[in-house]
Computed example of a mutant assay.
Amino acid sequence: MISPQLSHINPNPSFPFSNSTFPQSLPTKTLKPHFKPKPTPIVSVLQYNRKPQLSGETPRVVVITSGKGGVGKTTSTANIGLSLARLGFSVVAIDADVGLRNLDLLLGLENRVNYTAFEVINGDCRLDQALVRDKRWSNFELLCISKPRSKLPMGFGGKALIWLVDALKTRSEGCPDFIIIDCPAGIDAGFITAITPANEAVLVVTPDITSLRDADRVTGLLECDGIKDIKMIVNRVRTDLIRGEDMMSVLDVQEMLGLALLGVIPEDSEVIRSTNRGYPLVLNRPPTLAGLAFEQAAWRLVEQDSMKAVMVEEEPKKRGFFSFFGG
């Protein structure tokens, strides 16, 4: 039976007080209404939560060169090309190394190259037959100039490559957003052929004096050819050697060459594994530091952006690869 004092209270079995312990009089207290602040919209600080804005006229014809061999031109072409494809842009990568092509190996497409640009020019096949579409990303295509152990006539040069680029612009499937040309080493006829149709250049260098001397020479040749948009990727960087003053820092390289910095790629043993497997670094899960650096370089290439480098010694408390550059 409910007491008269509590007759106005609805019985509830989950109520914490029983009839015997419930207070006879409840204190009167004026409670101020509690207003919760409206949640502010989340503004992400990561630029990778949005798609990069493509700047410039399409197609963007970019040549990746260095002058010196073994600095990572083909590795940069494969990883940047697939990074652009993962960002949603259509990409055609051209291996312009006539005698020593390797881009198909790094992409794992060597068994699917049946026709090359040489057959297209001779009229033996169509352009779409020579383009090898990647199965992982259908908006990425590879075009090889020639097959290994084949000889091209002396007439193949910059005009033939310009014709191929113009054919890609007017093909029925649509014009690609990026045409990336993997330039051969050296500054001979193959180099002149590769840079002829390009209007942008990415110079791959390593922090050693031989690479910097060749890069400085190549920069002058690119400017003489009318290519003014030249950016630089510093590859195979080791922070431990930089701190020990056994390797030039990225800032030193940038001051010596005077070029805008597109990306900084650390030394990574995973590069050898990915090369042998035909599986570029940017597809690895979880990603490696080098793979993330290539993705960032591709992002900056889309928006025609650059980054700033600082000395390692300026931030001694930070550890790891990303302690010596910002932006």
Rank of each mutant, 00 (worst) to 15 (best):
Asp95Cys: 03
Thr210His: 06
Arg171Phe: 00
Ile179Tyr: 05
Asp95Met: 04
Glu223Gly: 00
Phe140Ser: 01
Ala215Thr: 14
Ser172Met: 10
Glu110Ile: 15
Asp97Trp: 08
Asp128Cys: 02
Gly220Tyr: 11
Ile227Phe: 06
Ile121Met: 03
Asn102Pro: 03
Ile209Phe: 06
Ile121Gln: 07
Asp166Gln: 12
Leu152Cys: 02
Ile187Leu: 11
Phe156Asp: 00
Ser172Cys: 02
Leu142His: 05
Ala198Leu: 04
Glu173Cys: 01
Phe178Asn: 02
Cys224Ser: 11
Val202Leu: 12
Asp188Phe: 14
Ile179Met: 02
Leu161Cys: 04
Ala130Ile: 15
Val120Trp: 13
Gly123Lys: 14
Gly158Leu: 04
Cys125Pro: 05
Glu110Arg: 07
Cys183Ala: 12
Leu212Glu: 06
Tyr115Arg: 11
Cys183Ser: 08
Ala185Ser: 13
Phe118His: 10
Gly220Ser: 05
Val98Lys: 08
Lys228Gln: 11
Ile180His: 04
Asp134Ser: 05
Glu119Cys: 03
Leu221Tyr: 08
Gly190Gln: 08
Thr210Lys: 06
Ala194Tyr: 12
Gly123Met: 12
Lys228Ile: 08
Ile195Thr: 14
Lys169Asn: 04
Ala201Asp: 09
Ile121Asp: 05
Asp166Tyr: 07
Lys135Pro: 01
Thr116Asn: 06
Ile145Trp: 12
Asn111Gln: 10
Lys169Cys: 03
Ile181Gln: 10
Leu106Arg: 09
Ala96Ile: 14
Pro148Val: 11
Lys151Met: 03
Val205Gly: 01
Gly220Cys: 04
Asn122Ser: 02
Asp124Phe: 06
Thr219Asp: 06
Gly99Tyr: 15
Thr116Gln: 05
Leu203Asp: 02
Ile187Gly: 01
Pro197Asn: 06
Leu105Ala: 04
Asp177Ala: 09
Gly155Thr: 15
Tyr115Cys: 00
Val202Ser: 05
Ala198Phe: 12
Asp97Ala: 01
Ala201Phe: 13
Arg217Thr: 11
Ile180Tyr: 11
Leu143Phe: 01
Asp229Ser: 10
Glu173Tyr: 05
Asp229Trp: 10
Asp214Val: 12
Ile227Trp: 09
Ile162Gly: 00
Asp104Tyr: 07
Leu107Gly: 01
Asp208Val: 09
Leu107Phe: 10
Asp124Tyr: 13
Ala185Tyr: 12
Leu164Thr: 15
Arg171Met: 03
Gly174Tyr: 09
Glu200Tyr: 07
Gly190Thr: 05
Leu143Asp: 02
Val205Gln: 07
Arg136Ser: 06
Arg101Ile: 13
Leu143Arg: 08
Asp134Phe: 11
Leu107Glu: 07
Ile162Asn: 03
Asp95Gln: 08
Asp214Trp: 08
Leu203Ala: 00
Gly108Ser: 03
Arg213Lys: 10
Ile162Met: 06
Arg133Thr: 13
Val165Leu: 06
Asp97Met: 05
Asn114Leu: 08
Asp128Phe: 08
Pro184Ile: 13
Ala194Cys: 07
Thr170Ala: 01
Gly123Thr: 15
Ile180Lys: 08
Ala198Val: 15
Lys159Cys: 00
Leu106Asp: 02
Arg101His: 09
Ile192Phe: 09
Leu152Glu: 05
Thr219Leu: 03
Val113Met: 06
Ile227Asn: 04
Leu212Phe: 01
Gly220Thr: 15
Gly157Glu: 11
Ala96Cys: 07
Ile179Arg: 02
Leu168His: 10
Asp208Gln: 12
Leu203Met: 11
Ser138Tyr: 12
Leu103Tyr: 14
Ile145Asn: 02
Gly186Thr: 15
Arg217His: 07
Arg136Val: 06
